[in-house]
Nucleic acid binder design. Structure first.
Length: 378
RNA sequence: GUGGGUAUGGCGCAGUUGGCUAGCGCGCCAGAUUGUGGCUCUGGAGGCCGUGGGUUCGAGUCCCACUAUCCACC
């Protein structure tokens, strides 16, 4: 159930209700690929951070511990002790990111496991079956994510195949939801728009998948190497062709700026590894720009990562101490940094929703863009 | 005290029969990273090759002395 509460230009303030609760959008989904936020952040921590919805990965959980295992343990919600919505990515992106380990065919993709090298086959049906076993709130379609600089002819063939795969995903998901022992009979399937940087392919594809009347749609294959401006212009072109009465999800994006630009163009859902991965590497987001905590200038800096930040890290620890932990490769260092970054992202989304509620998103976006693009404070 | 070994950037080491701007790993400094393999990648700084003499057109490489350090023996 998707309800539009308010709009400002193309930006939308909505509510998305699922069997696992309601999500207020625009929202950032915290990425926990293997049913865990990397950096020793637990599902209990996620609630403290204001996280509404978590994202996990089909391929990674299939390889380890195995989706059958998770099904036997009652599904992913129970497994990771998280009762709010969970979106599972389909494994499609791994077709792209683990490119050296795979072969794409009409029936699906042959992978070599990155864990033990064993051969794995995944097609639309397999991806749906795995996601059904996981019992996530939202399952993503199994797609191919062509490189942004792929030749147009290849992209066209790839997108056509992704469309055929989506039809198979939908049929399989309907079959699985009707089974007696299914973990989540209300599991939703989101379609994925592709087409690299070719607006005509994107738009044509958006129209075709919209006809399938799925509960939500995403835009994939962006932020994979093309310039930011290209991504924004693709959004300008394609978002209007996706159903406006359904959630729109921009996959894998992005920087705080990318998210603001996405909301501005009508996107509801985002996810990105940046806050967690960059957090692990001491790259911290603040309203005064990026703080690279490993830089030598922070060795004696007794201030918090961000003055006035409400996260538990900033309320308790100094830059100098956290820097030491990172240098010493203490797990606590990563944890504290990831907590700050996730807080920053979730808090920014809350600010965005408040601004939309109050009809002042445009001015909020302008001032936030200035903040996030500021140089490191001294 | 005697015999033997070793001395090369912060640490650990390579440096072929003496030959052009002395390398490597780690560390350090800086930067990348967008549906995550706790990675990976890209730059950069830093060495009068223990000290002093000698041989040679040319010495980190050969010779002598000294100093430091390690091992064995007394």
């Amino acid at each position: 159930m998707y309800k539009i509460l308010k709009t400002e230009g193309r930006a939308k303030r909505c509510e998305f209700t699922t069997v696992h609760g309601t999500v207020q959008t625009p929202v950032f989904m915290n990425v926990g690929t293997a049913a865990a936020i990397k950096g020793a952040v637990s599902s209990v921590d996620l609630k403290d951070l204001g996280c509404q919805i978590e994202l996990s990965n089909t391929y990674h959980l299939h390889v380890r511990p195995g989706d059958e295992v998770i099904k036997k343990l009652g599904g992913i919600h129970r497994f990771m002790a998280w009762d709010r919505p969970i979106l599972t990515d389909s494994g499609g992106f791994q077709v792209f990111s683990l490119a050296s380990l795979r072969k794409i065919k009409e029936e699906g993709v042959y992978f070599n496991s990155h864990v033990d090298g064993r051969k794995i086959f995944m097609g639309p049906e397999q991806s749906m079956q795995i996601q059904s076993n996981l019992g996530s709130t939202v399952a993503m379609a199994f797609d191919e994510c062509p490189p942004s600089l792929a030749e147009k002819q290849y992209v066209k063939e790839s997108v056509d195949r992704t469309t055929r795969w989506l039809v198979r995903c939908k049929a399989e998901m309907e079959r699985l939801c009707a089974l007696e022992d299914t973990v989540n009979p209300d599991q939703m399937l989101f379609g994925i728009n592709q087409g690299a940087v070719y607006p005509d392919i994107r738009i044509e594809h958006a129209k075709r998948i919209s006809d399938l009347d799925l509960p939500g749609y995403s835009i994939g294959g962006l932020a994979v190497g093309e310039p930011n401006e290209v991504m924004y212009s693709i959004l300008d072109e394609v978002v209007p062709y996706l159903p406006q009465n359904k959630p729109t999800y921009l996959m894998g994006v992005g920087t705080p700026r990318d998210i603001l630009e996405g909301v501005y163009r009508g996107v509801d859902f985002f996810d990105c590894v940046y806050p967690s991965r960059n957090g692990r590497h001491g790259h911290l987001y603040t309203d005064k720009g990026t703080v690279r905590l490993l830089n030598a200038k922070y060795e004696l800096d007794d201030r918090p990562i961000e003055e006035g930040c409400g996260c538990s890290t900033c309320r308790t620890y100094s830059r100098a101490y956290i820097r030491h932990l990172l240098k010493a490769k203490e797990m606590l260092g990563m944890r504290l940094c990831v907590i700050h970054n996730l807080y920053y992202y979730n808090n920014m989304m809350r600010e965005i929703r408040d601004a939309l509620d109050e009809g002042r998103f445009a001015s909020y976006m302008k001032s936030k863009l200035e903040k996030v693009s500021a140089d490191n404070e001294k």
